[in-house]
Write a protein that binds this DNA or RNA. Structure first.
Lengths: 220, 220
DNA sequence: AAAGTAACATACAGACATGTACGTATGTGA
DNA sequence: TCACATACGTACATGTCTGTATGTTACTTT
């Protein structure tokens, strides 16, 4: 007889990794849409094609699942947004590229995970809050540093303390991308405009065409 | 014996209004900090100095309480932010004044109510979601109209459709103010900068002193 | 001042979600 | 092929929250 599902006949480790990914993605969607408290593990498992038994076999409890989602989202963000933007030498260009890449990244339905959890756990002492802090804090320092660097070189005008400006930068970016909910193609342009305003930059020259990478667009 | 609390000896209507206000404010703080699902009515009543019995005497259920909070916050916002900003004749000046006033408004601890609920109920069919829609939708149309008006007069450069730009405007504003959590005095400047960027405006002239009205500052 | 009504407290029932114990199926190594 | 480990499903025990029913206190009216 054929195996239960297509391509399921694999090694144990592979099987485990497969279901773990499915559960993580389902949990990410659920967290983004409903938040932590409203997240029903039965629905998370159900939408992934499993039951709560499988979920509790992979994750110790709800907290640990949420922490794993945070780490997973953080990794994909660094791979698709943070890393490529950091590659730019010019700090100003790096900051603008980050905003554009983030807008594209947010076209997926897992964009709200970080913002939702940050709001839900802000000011609380909770393992999930610490996981968020571990993923967000380095960004503030890294990009706050680049803001300071750009100001020293005169590429950016003076302004509030770099770390505060960086906080405003990321808050702005999250706010504008969530409000637009990934409505291409204007999301990229508006995101860049918003952060340019926070940084004290004039509007971008309208000549350069807004490049819109395939944010979960239709296949081939 | 003396009455239970100071100045409690009042008429029934006054007594009712008093506890209703206390419950609303407590619920607003709770919603802002923990969201709807995490909001425990026992804690809401307790922090207001009552029990759940009083709460259920004033509000039919949790939904209605949340709706009342939304209306209450909406009213105070219109009184302190939306109304004064609308009074400006020049659309651009009105849009910038709105951003500054909103930043000041958000120095209170009830600032996150709208954003939290919007995220928690986005894309759901729920009475609270409809209450939010009723309070937010008119803003998008009103201020989208002023954006269109400013573009026609040349005060604003062309951009995405006015309603989409207005969505981005408010999302940006909420994001930047929440990120700064009302940290005066830079919140006002950064909020205005962010929305100027969304609108395609150049940075504000640094000459004019940033006016910071008393956002819950210590009394004289 | 006493009856009556509104405001509020307390006690209880139902729903729902988490976490655990245990059973079953599937893959792995001797 | 047989013993074992891992992946997953099912059933239950526990706690927490909402909503309701009932009792008690504060005010109003006559």
């Amino acid at each position: 007889m054929a195996t239960s599902r297509s391509g399921d006949r694999r090694t144990q480790a592979d099987r485990r990794a497969r279901t773990r990914s499915a559960l993580l993605e389902s949990a990410a969607r659920g967290l983004s849409a409903h938040g932590y408290a409203n997240l029903s593990l039965e629905r998370v498992a159900g939408e992934a094609g499993y039951t709560r038994g499988a979920l509790y076999h992979q994750f110790a409890n709800k907290e640990e699942l949420a922490q794993a989602v945070v780490e997973w989202v953080g990794e994909t963000w660094r791979a698709e947004v943070g890393g490529p933007a950091s590659a730019h030498q010019d700090p100003v260009e790096a900051l603008c590229a980050l905003a554009r890449a983030h807008a594209v990244y947010c076209r997926r339905d897992i964009a709200g995970v970080m913002m939702t959890l940050q709001i839900e756990f802000s000011g609380r002492d909770h393992p999930v809050a610490r996981a968020l802090e571990r993923n967000v804090r380095p960004l503030i320092t890294e990009w706050g540093g680049r803001i300071a660097q750009a100001r020293e070189s005169g590429a950016l005008p003076p302004g509030p303390p770099p770390e505060e400006t960086a906080s405003a930068y990321f808050g702005t970016l999250q706010g504008v991308t969530i409000a637009l909910a990934g409505r291409a193609p204007h999301d990229v342009r508006l995101a860049e405009g918003a952060v340019r305003g926070v940084l004290g930059l004039p509007p971008a020259a309208p000549g350069e065409p807004v490049l819109t990478p395939p944010g979960r667009g239709a296949a081939p």
